[in-house]
Simulated scan of single mutants.
Amino acid sequence: MDEHDWLTIIQLPSYAPDLNPVEGVWSLLRRGPLASTTFSDDDHLESILRCGLRHIQLRPNLIDGCLTETGLNLTHYPTTPRQAQ
């Protein structure tokens, strides 16, 4: 970590699903294509998941909404080399 000036580490609580945008994606899937579905086999589950994820991927506003719900943002801050201490 100290060898990579571009890497920023932010410590989050060990269990914080409300800070994880992926939880929002799972919520969209559970309320959408996975809702009230009985899967015949693993391939059927995979097919439905891929279709649901593709739907989300093609709608950036859904992904932005999942990120917004966390209260976090993906602002890029230019890095400067750290000074040796």
Rank of each mutant, 00 (worst) to 15 (best):
D2G: 10
E3Y: 15
E3C: 10
H4E: 12
H4N: 15
H4G: 00
D5H: 14
D5C: 04
W6R: 11
W6N: 14
W6I: 10
L7P: 10
I9M: 09
I9W: 01
I9Y: 04
I10E: 12
I10L: 08
Q11S: 09
Q11G: 01
P13W: 02
P13R: 07
P13Y: 09
P13M: 08
S14N: 12
S14D: 09
Y15H: 11
A16M: 05
P17S: 01
L19V: 01
N20G: 08
V22S: 03
E23H: 01
E23M: 09
E23A: 10
G24W: 00
V25I: 15
V25G: 01
V25A: 05
W26E: 00
W26Q: 04
W26D: 00
S27D: 08
S27R: 02
L28Q: 04
L28I: 05
L29H: 02
L29W: 00
R30S: 03
R30H: 02
R31I: 00
G32W: 01
P33L: 15
P33M: 07
A35D: 04
A35N: 10
S36V: 08
S36F: 08
T38A: 14
D41F: 00
D42G: 03
D42L: 14
H44V: 06
E46F: 08
S47Y: 11
I48M: 03
I48S: 01
I48D: 05
L49C: 08
R50E: 14
R50A: 13
R50I: 08
R50F: 12
C51N: 09
C51E: 11
C51T: 12
G52K: 05
G52I: 06
G52S: 06
L53R: 07
L53F: 10
L53I: 13
L53N: 04
L53H: 04
R54W: 04
R54N: 10
R54F: 01
H55M: 06
H55E: 13
H55Y: 13
H55N: 11
Q57G: 02
L58F: 06
R59V: 09
P60V: 11
P60K: 09
N61D: 14
L62Q: 13
L62V: 09
L62P: 05
L62G: 01
D64H: 15
D64G: 01
D64C: 13
G65Q: 10
C66Y: 03
C66Q: 03
C66P: 03
C66F: 02
C66A: 08
L67C: 12
T68S: 09
E69S: 11
E69G: 02
G71R: 03
G71M: 04
L72H: 07
L74T: 12
T75A: 15
H76M: 09
H76N: 09
T79P: 05
T79M: 00
T80L: 13
T80E: 12
T80C: 06
P81M: 10
P81G: 12
P81C: 14
R82P: 03
A84I: 14
A84F: 05
Q85A: 13
Q85Y: 02
